[in-house]
């Protein structure tokens, strides 16, 4: 049975286990190698499950590992919302 772990980047449990076996055995390297958690939802739907798999496969206490320094917004934001209201894009007034 194939379990999809990360829908945004189309990754299955098998992909993740394989990458861990290749040596990407912590969340930060696993993420960058597979682009796991890097999709539009920024990992909301997959990182918890990925952590669980990582813990199972490596025996490491993944919760204890360093948190990433990236700061995702809570959901994808268009540039028109981030820019100053009086300048920038054509449809951001």
């Amino acid at each position: 049975m194939t379990t999809v772990v990360c829908r945004c980047e189309d990754l299955t449990e098998e992909d993740i286990v394989e990458a861990i076996e290749e040596g990407y055995d912590e969340l930060e390297t696993l993420k960058r190698h597979l682009r796991l958690g890097m999709g539009p939802c920024q990992g909301k739907a997959c990182l918890l499950l990925a952590r669980r798999i990582l813990r199972r496969e490596t025996g490491k206490d993944v919760e204890e590992m360093k948190e990433p320094t990236a700061r995702p917004p809570s959901r994808p934001v268009p540039f028109s919302l981030l820019a100053s209201p009086d300048e920038g894009g054509e449809d951001d007034d």
Partner: peptide, 24 residues
């Protein structure tokens, strides 16, 4: 976020609907 977005939209106004997902 603000300065990048402002400048980017000056360069390419059509990026206004493009979605940013992460900064670091």
């Amino acid at each position: 976020l603000k300065n990048f977005s402002d400048t980017l939209l000056d360069f390419i106004p059509r990026f206004s609907g493009v979605h940013m997902i992460r900064q670091w």
